[in-house]
Write a protein that binds this DNA or RNA. Structure first.
Lengths: 206, 206
DNA sequence: GAATTCTTTTCATCACGATTCAATAAATCG
DNA sequence: CGATTTATTGAATCGTGATGAAAAGAATTC
């Protein structure tokens, strides 16, 4: 009797468009027009789905973080039950592939705005703690099996490893001439070696 | 025969005002009006000194980084010639005092924009490398005197320590509930302990 | 105090982005 | 097809910020 609603589909398209716009122009430079252009619509159409533009922007950021985290969780689940392999995979998956990695670009943009946006600050803090939790599980698992000889509490090691990921993410996004994805990975692994007392060579897992 | 020029003084006042505005509203939210208000002037007066507003903003950012770095260098110089004390002081001075630390807030804001601003990216990369250099000097000094037993090349250790500083700066600015200045300091020192093979207790320097 | 140069404000203008609303297009069902 | 609901557009409006020009204000020298 009428045209069916398919708003959810459009809404997620708009969220994706907003994410691209933010990655391209920053959280404040992502004007309504840019989002609309990115989505192939007019600004009015965007407003039709998100009468409050801030709501769309927040959702774009929130969803971006969620997606980043969820992807890592899924990756971890698909891996064999090997602490060494898992630790290395975590380190690799936490780094941007290069300066053009839009997913991490988004996260970096948010980091700066956390200082003046309590909501963003809270989301980022949560994301950080969740990632720390992931590392902790792997570390504890390895320790329980006698594979890792943790030199520090797992919380300390995990916090430092996630911190390294974050920081090198910024360096890679900024295009550091000698710290690219692989270089940062090696640096993080080097730190993990000391903390776990393990070689962390892919094959020497047991 | 006429009123003397004292533009340099005003210009540096404006740079400081711009820094405060950026720390308060972000790199893109720092409108000309905000800067003027922060400086106690009108927007036109600001334009009188900086016809190109982007030039002021860039200078504010550049000067902010420079100042941050120079302050650390001076602090190091004033310290006794003790690698342990210097390393600890470095770690402490690289972290924001709290979420309200405007100097580090500024740096965090820039980190995000580096992805779309090559000039900022270049400045931040330089700042990072310079800080790494500072750490390297201290590490090598300690190693040469037999105080530190470096578990890795000094470049690797230094890069990781500066990275930790950066990342915890973001966490502190974001107001992480359990990672404040002191907490982050302990985490960084914990990592430095493993890398230097030294207790890093303030008194056990020799 | 008058002349001169530097500084600042006021005001007008311009461009751009957000927002609204009426009009139009599209999809579905009977 | 035509009624009905959903989706999208385009023009109009509004506010904000950047910018420029002219006028007013301030500091110095003679």
């Amino acid at each position: 009797m009428a045209r069916p609603k398919r708003q959810e589909e459009r809404r997620s398209q708009l969220v994706a468009a907003a994410q691209r716009a933010i990655a391209a122009h920053g959280p404040d430079g992502a004007r309504l027009n840019r989002v609309a252009e990115e989505a192939g619509l007019t600004s009015s159409a965007v407003l039709y789905y998100y009468p409050d533009i801030d709501e769309l922007m927040f959702e774009a950021n929130r969803a971006g973080m969620e997606r980043f985290y969820e992807a890592r969780v899924r990756m971890l689940e698909q891996l064999p039950d090997d602490p060494v392999a898992r630790l290395l995979a975590l380190a690799k998956s936490g780094l941007p592939s290069g300066p053009g990695d839009t997913e991490v670009r988004l996260l970096c943009e948010l980091g700066g705005s956390a200082g003046r946006n309590p909501l963003m600050a809270s989301l980022l803090t949560t994301l950080y703690d969740r990632q720390v939790g992931m590392y902790q599980v792997v570390l504890e698992q390895g320790a329980a099996r006698g594979i890792f000889a943790l030199a520090q509490p797992s919380l300390v090691i995990a916090r430092n490893l996630v911190a390294l990921e974050d920081a090198y993410g910024y360096r890679i996004i900024a295009g550091h001439p000698t710290i690219d994805h692989d270089g940062a990975y090696e640096l993080i692994v080097a730190s993990a070696r000391l903390a776990t007392g393990h070689d962390l060579t892919p094959s020497a897992s047991s």
